[in-house]
């Protein structure tokens, strides 16, 4: 090895670009009266998401977890009446490393009071269009994308047909166990790469992939999760929700996540019961979205690997 491991992997130009991008984001929200807030990065509670692992630290001799997103803190502030707000800072995810992933990364998350997912999706398009300097934008439903590319309706296709399609389109070492696993495989291997240039906004996800979004019937009477994702050049950039405000449903989903994690022998972290309490006290109707800032920078500066936009990725951190 001739490389000097003390050196940053990002060029000075990339670091300057990052600084400009952060300033542009803050200006975007300042112009719209959205308040920047800071919430804990270190917490006794962790996400219950079945597919996200938290980094565990010790604080006062007891386990504490590095935030996988600022969501819980921001929602508690919303319930406390702070109004439209955003956080621009670090998030941590155990085990996520690769060309587009670093376990420590920069996340922008914001909430709009009184908005639904469709309205927030437009604002995401506007921000991304500005940061990426493009006007090429299209929005379509999850169903439309599957119909266009694979000629199947992801909500109504039979289990057998869906599994056959995943097996045909992707060389697999295993048999997919669930519909969602098939859909995730098709999305990440087949549909994302085919999205092409420009910004793609995708909405109305299967109800089984609701996470913390509301589930509502669409115009065809199918129950869909009022969630959206933003992509550019085939790379996933943002995930948005028309947020759940019902404390009982929230508690039910936490328990469902815990059962899933326990059944799949994954670590079960203490969930944020104070979010449930905040929802009981009354969180306003709102929409929220999280956006990966490092990936936006990769696209804005035409960098192919996340290491090129982070001064010290995990191997050098």
């Amino acid at each position: 090895m001739t490389e000097n491991f003390w050196q940053p992997t990002a060029s000075a130009e990339a670091l300057r670009h990052r600084a400009r991008l952060l300033a542009d984001i803050r200006r975007f929200f300042a112009d719209r009266d959205v308040l920047e807030v800071e919430v804990p990065l270190l917490s006794r509670r962790a996400t219950s998401d079945p597919h996200i692992e938290s980094v565990t630290a010790l604080c006062g001799g007891q386990p504490a977890y590095l935030a996988t997103s600022p969501e819980f803190g921001l929602k508690r502030l919303l319930a406390a009446g702070v109004g439209d707000c955003y956080s621009l800072g670090r998030a941590f995810r155990e085990g996520e490393a690769g060309g587009r992933h670093n376990p420590e990364f920069t996340m922008l998350e914001w909430y709009r009071v009184g908005w639904d997912d469709r309205k927030l999706m437009e604002e995401v398009g506007e921000l991304l269009g500005r940061l990426l300097g493009t006007e090429r934008m299209r929005s379509l439903s999850y169903r439309e994308l599957f119909l266009q590319q694979l000629e199947l309706d992801p909500h109504t296709v039979s289990d057998v047909e869906l599994r056959d399609c995943a097996g045909r389109e992707v060389e697999l070492s295993f048999t997919p166990a669930t519909r969602d696993e098939c859909l995730d495989l098709l999305m990440s291997h087949r549909l994302e790469p085919a999205m092409g240039e420009g910004i793609t906004l995708l909405y109305d996800f299967p109800a089984s992939q609701a996470a913390l979004a509301r589930v509502v019937e669409d115009e065809t009477g199918t129950a869909v999760a009022r969630r959206f994702e933003a992509y550019a050049s085939g790379m996933e950039l943002a995930n948005g929700y028309w947020e759940l405000t019902d404390p009982e449903e929230q508690l039910r989903r936490f328990h469902a996540d815990h059962s899933y994690r326990a059944a799949h022998k994954r670590h079960v972290y203490p969930f944020e019961e104070r979010l449930v309490e905040a929802l009981c006290a009354g969180m306003p109707e709102c929409a929220g979205v999280a956006l990966g800032v490092d990936r936006v920078l990769m696209l804005a500066g035409d960098y192919s690997r996340i290491d090129e936009v982070i001064a010290f990725p995990i191997d050098r951190a």
Binding site: H51, E96, G98, D180, L185, M187, S188, E236, N239
Partner: peptide
């Protein structure tokens, strides 16, 4: 070993949808 034959790994790409399961391609 893969399918009974010795193989050398050329490339390993970590793939994970924001909300969804992680795969290695």
């Amino acid at each position: 070993m893969l399918d009974g034959d010795p193989c050398s790994i050329v490339e390993n790409e970590f793939v994970k949808p924001g909300k969804g399961q992680a795969f290695n391609r």
